[in-house]
Amino acid sequence: MRRDAALEEASGSAYAFTRVLPAGDEGLLFEFGSDIDEATNQRVQDFAEALRLARIPGVRSITPGYLSVLVEYDGGLRHQGAMEQVLSAAGAASVQQRMARHHLIPVCYGGAFGPDLEDVAVATGLVPQEVVRLHASQEYRVYCLGFSPGFPLCAPIPAALRLPRRSQPRLRVPEGSVAIAGMQTGIYPLETAGGWHLIGRTPARVFSWNDPSVTMILPGDTISFRPVGEEEYLEIADRAASAETSARVAAGGADG
């Protein structure tokens, strides 16, 4: 997608899906393209936002992914053909784009915080310091949230760092773990199972159940990582704990 087209989208209509795929009798998958890029994903996010704002009765969930939006609805209320019409019309409304935010995430790489850093270094043929340097060297787009609540799926990571997922997923990945898999990097907001390579951990809180849409990293935002030592990690963790009320990622200086 060329840049001028992306700019056009920003001010215009989100009505740009390329096709609709049925997902059972209570779901429709609106697809916006086949290549992962920012412009396609922006149309995905705009369409999802337009549908959320339309508050269509019977719609249960609107889930944007990299290239598509899955809409799930109560099939007992409205059948698929009718729902597709309503959704297409609602998605055509132009939306005021949410102001994207940048989040600077402090990360303590390696050691107990990043138990897979050494393995990643071996598998990629790099020294651990180079893995860290590459991972922290660029800005990533948050393409969507998923896997677990608030988990930001960010891409694309430098080609030299791309590895398949671990063959044996871990049953428990600690909260705040910063990980890579394939072309993606992300942060585990909660302690969950997970199959990504854990290269570090952030003391910043990236998800709060109280008011998630206000406090968290959202699709369309950007993220970059700032290496910190263990001492600074603990300092930030302390501050975050004492400022528990603001679950915002403020700890490391998310500059909103």
Binding site: A48, R60, S61, I62, E72, L145, S148, G150, P212, L218
Partner: peptide
């Protein structure tokens, strides 16, 4: 019936 309307936040149904 489920926790609907939170798919964009990655919150399961």
């Amino acid at each position: 019936q489920g926790r609907f309307g939170q798919g964009h936040l990655g919150v399961p149904q």
